[in-house]
């Protein structure tokens, strides 16, 4: 099943990513992703058992910040960008129906 991603997987992944896809997007996505994964799957042939994964190229450790308060942002500045501000807060549709 690797390398080929079907319609159902596309829909599942789209839900995980909170993306609504149109019918044609689903079809196109399935074939495009399959094509890309087919190329990517070449790394499956490599012998990597003894190889450590790299998640950082920098060799730093313990980069920390002193526990000193910095002024927070004026609420009006913060809410200026909000799509639906209300009572000094960010209003969102209720998750209940989710």
């Amino acid at each position: 099943m690797r390398g080929v991603i079907d319609r159902e997987q596309v829909l599942h992944v789209a839900r995980l990513a909170r993306l609504r896809l149109s019918e044609e997007e689903v079809e196109r996505m399935a074939s495009e992703l399959s094509g890309i994964l087919d190329h990517v799957d070449r790394i499956a042939e490599l012998d990597l058992d003894e190889v450590e994964p790299t998640s950082h190229v920098v060799s730093l450790e313990n980069v920390l910040r002193p526990d000193e308060p910095r002024p927070s942002w004026p609420r009006e500045v913060v809410l200026e960008q909000a799509p639906d501000p209300e009572d000094g807060a960010f209003r969102v549709p209720s998750p209940q129906a989710e």
Binding site: A17, R18, L19, R20, L21, V92, P93, S94, P95, Q96, A97, E98
Partner: peptide, 11 residues
């Protein structure tokens, strides 16, 4: 609902 808002916004 929330899910619909998320999915429409990102779509």
């Amino acid at each position: 609902d929330l899910l619909e808002m998320y999915e429409s916004t990102r779509a």
